[in-house]
Nucleic acid binder design. Structure first.
Lengths: 347, 347
DNA sequence: TTGTATGCGTTATCAT
DNA sequence: ATGATAACGCATACAA
């Protein structure tokens, strides 16, 4: 068993006949300490095997140099890319990232916000659980001057920083793309959450139809309960069994799009000739599937980076007692036209 | 600007005319505190909006209730599933998970071990960077009684806990599966790292060939510099351009397998009739691709769970001054026979 | 440029 | 069953 081996700045101070405050400053290259002393301190620290204790340092400021990330799950490509973007940005600034998964449960999310606060993280980045309607549990952060960024799945009302894409216009663009390919009966898969990103994408879809003189048909709008491959297969079946089946599908997620595509293929329906499909997210599979799936780019990593940067900027300003205005950051999306919607110039 | 609003146990103590130690105990349901007092304390804490400060609590024990996870990247399906398994297990035990990405760089990995230690995490789970040969930078954990688990990509020499699959036997099984399908010229893609998981998978492949009277041909073993789709495409080309091309490919990763499969299709080579393929990992794409890719299951989430459990068990034992023996935990893999290798019963 | 003293919020030890 | 107090390791205000 190891004994209490911990070398502290006190030990260094004793060895060098200096005050702990001098050591503390020297280690951080404080300008008021002579180069020579700094050198000596660092050398000794190294020799003695000193490791700074972030816990103790943080206790004074009452904040860890940590960014908390609260998301539904880490296994979705979009979210793991988001994390990656956050982590890279945080790491550069000397911040650490803690991950918590809500699994789309409101209850878990509430508990996790508490954990995050109890750990005194410097800032929080959150993509809301599907179940979440009320966001009062985040008040603890804003009340305590902890920067909070909602990303992608954000609350309806705006009280803090948001980093999002314009889901309405992305939905519009996707639909218009299909219209441009000559589709006349465009179906849409939607998820049954009000005021969610899916709701907005659907509205974009509807607007695009209207703007181009196409009817909005209830039978062509189907709803999934979960964003899963199997759920999508069910509703694809429903759509393609229609007396008058669609000639285009806008799926607001690539899993849904891929599922529809596979199902159509199974049915012997030609994609894109008989049925054009566009997904959403630009997940890795969208490029690998055959035919490749047209989709909407979703800048996951950039959104992570942007979110982390907002936190860092806020923290920096906070030190100078500046206030940063809460804002919504919109990131661009674009149509990635690939084989699954290429009706015009078939090779 | 908010003032220092923080409610501490001291405030509660003052309000209730009790000692801070009583509050501290009451909040944690210490047996020596009367039910009545506990009730009163909790009620008041709630009313006053008290939130425990884990930082302060941890400073005494010199450890945060946090598990550090150091991995190459979070965006690979295998690794994000690993994280998920870790996080779920940790969360249940009241532990938090911090994520750090080495991006397969030795230098970054060295720095990150320091950050992890400086944050005084309770335990560390690591999957080594590709570049890493020397693991001396992890000594800081073992020296300080911090449990360390290597998972999947583990060091050559065994000094601490390992959670792995048997890569040799998995490689053997994959190859044997192709042999069973009637393949006579089985190619293998490998990655150029000595003593890595790829090295072992290759050895399993070689052994399987030998055991079944098949020659080990250098021209059928190709090497990629990185595990990417494009790299795999290059070597697939090389293989399929051979005068005497292979009738089977064992790819030690699904990205590689999918790439080979796509390339073969592009060339008009029939899979599995002319070429059987088996991948590794059971990534989501393997099931979605057409034909579906046979693969080796890799229990990512379970490995995460097992790793976290080892840490938790160690910590628990440590409290009682017990010592837990360092061990290697092997998790099972199995052949998932799908369309890409189904030569026998083609529908 | 360096030193002294104190506090951050909690828990553990030792008393009562 | 409860109280008083020291200690965790560091950073800062103030002093010299």
């Amino acid at each position: 068993m190891k004994e209490n081996t911990e070398v502290t700045i006190y030990d260094i101070a004793k060895k060098l006949n200096l005050a702990t405050s001098t050591i503390s400053r020297g280690l951080k290259d404080h300008h008021s300490i002579s180069k020579k002393t700094i050198q000596k301190i660092k050398k000794t620290a190294e020799e003695m095997g000193y490791s700074p204790n972030n816990l103790a340092a943080s206790l004074r400021g009452n904040k860890m140099k940590t960014i908390g990330v609260l998301i539904p799950t880490v296994t979705q490509p979009f979210l793991s890319s988001l994390i990656s973007g956050i982590e890279i940005t945080a790491q550069k600034a000397g911040y650490t990232v803690v991950i918590m998964q809500s699994h789309d449960s409101y209850k878990e999310e509430v508990n996790l916000t508490k954990s995050l606060y109890n750990n005194r993280v410097s800032g929080v980045i959150c993509s809301l659980a599907m179940e979440t309607k009320d966001t009062a549990h985040f008040k603890i952060f804003t009340d305590n001057n902890t920067p909070l960024v909602f990303v992608d799945r954000v609350p309806k009302h705006f009280e803090t920083f948001h980093v999002v894409i314009d889901n309405f216009s992305a939905g519009y663009k996707a639909t218009k793309h299909l219209i441009d390919q000559g589709c006349k009966r465009i179906a849409h898969i939607t998820a049954g959450y009000e005021y969610s990103i899916f709701y907005e994408r659907k509205n974009g879809y509807i607007q695009a139809l209207k703007d181009h003189g196409l009817p909005v048909l209830e039978e062509l709008i189907v709803k999934v309960d979960e964003i899963t491959y199997d759920e999508a297969e069910k509703v694809s079946k429903k759509l393609l069994n229609l007396k008058n089946p669609p000639d285009g599908i806008f799926a607001p997620g690539d899993i849904l799009g891929v599922s529809a595509l596979q199902f159509a293929k199974k049915r012997g329906i030609k994609v894109p000739e008989d049925l054009a499909i566009i997904g959403f997210n630009n997940d890795p599979i969208s490029l690998i599937i055959d035919p490749s799936l047209s989709t909407i780019s979703h800048p996951a990593s950039k959104m992570g980076q942007a979110s982390a940067e907002i936190i860092l900027k806020y923290l920096k300003a906070s030190k100078k007692n500046d206030e940063i205005e809460k804002q919504i950051t919109f990131l661009n999306t674009e149509v990635l036209a690939r084989e699954s919607s290429n009706k015009k110039q078939i090779k």
